[in-house]
């Protein structure tokens, strides 16, 4: 019970600190002479939602790109890590390549994707995918490799099958690694989608930001940033939920 009230106190504190930031932001803007187009107040930012900017549609598009790219990255990252783990020659051949590919600043590939695939939601999903796929692959692959050799000896004396070793030891052991990779990937997926929209797009919040920048509607830009952040927060929350479902109260730190 003590634990629960401690938890509750922690959440209240988190909310208060966030509110505090908004209040300071508000006071700062209202008490100084900063013009609205440089720094809108929280109220002005919220009011920008009333403008005819197609908020819902643009939010939907960006969310589809973020979630789509992220979902593909999880599937491909986990899938490839499993293949590498099951077929060691594949790992020896391709893992160094993956590490090299990870070094490419994926944002720089954006213009190329546009050349190859034209623009739209699909290419943006791919940019988002390409930027967050490798961290997931690398952490999962590492997690699957981490099993203690003595522990493997122990289960081998029991003539454990490959499948048993995989399901009882390697896979559950890799989950904390996977989730830490997936958390890093959330931020990257959002960044990837927005970069795609900046480079070439006709819809989405990144596109919207460029549109309102022209008219110096800074409040709307702020709002767009807030919604983009919210998309990331929702995705992050889902990952935390999954982590809780899969790992529960077991320790999450690696």
């Amino acid at each position: 019970m003590n634990d629960i009230s401690k938890q509750a106190r922690r959440y209240v504190l988190i909310i208060l600190i966030h509110l505090g930031v908004v209040i300071i932001w508000h006071l700062w803007v209202t008490m100084s002479n900063i013009p609205d187009y440089v720094m809108p107040s929280p109220g002005a930012t919220l009011l920008s939602l009333g403008e005819e900017y197609g908020w819902l549609h643009n939010t939907y598009i960006t969310a589809v790109e973020v979630f789509g790219g992220y979902f593909l990255a999880v599937i491909a990252g986990v899938g490839l890590a499993l293949i590498f783990n099951w077929f060691k020659t594949m790992e020896t051949m391709f893992m160094p390549l993956m590490v090299s590919l990870n070094m490419i600043p994926k944002v720089a590939l954006g213009p190329l994707f546009i050349v190859w695939l034209s623009y739209g939601v699909g290419p943006n999903i791919l940019i988002s995918f390409s930027i967050c796929f490798l961290p997931i692959l690398l952490t999962m692959e590492r997690g699957l490799r981490e099993s203690d050799p003595d522990l493997l000896d122990l289960v081998r004396t029991l003539r454990a099958s490959r499948w048993q070793i995989f399901t009882k030891i390697q896979l559950p052991g890799s989950l904390p690694y996977l989730f830490s990779g997936m958390k890093v990937a959330v931020v990257l997926a959002v960044a990837g989608a927005i970069v795609g929209e900046f480079i070439a797009s006709q819809e989405g919040l990144g596109y919207l930001m460029l549109q309102v920048q022209v008219t110096l509607d800074t409040a709307a830009m702020f709002m767009a940033v807030l919604i983009i952040t919210a998309i990331g927060v929702v995705l992050y929350g889902l990952v935390l939920l999954l982590e809780y479902l899969f790992i529960g109260q077991a320790p999450k730190e690696i």
Partner: peptide, 21 residues
């Protein structure tokens, strides 16, 4: 090293060989 599976509770850790067999 005890080499316990850290995601399993004590009872489930003890049961591991029984599950494998």
């Amino acid at each position: 090293q005890p080499l316990l599976l850290k995601w399993r509770k004590v009872l489930q850790n003890v049961l591991l060989p029984a599950e494998i067999l």
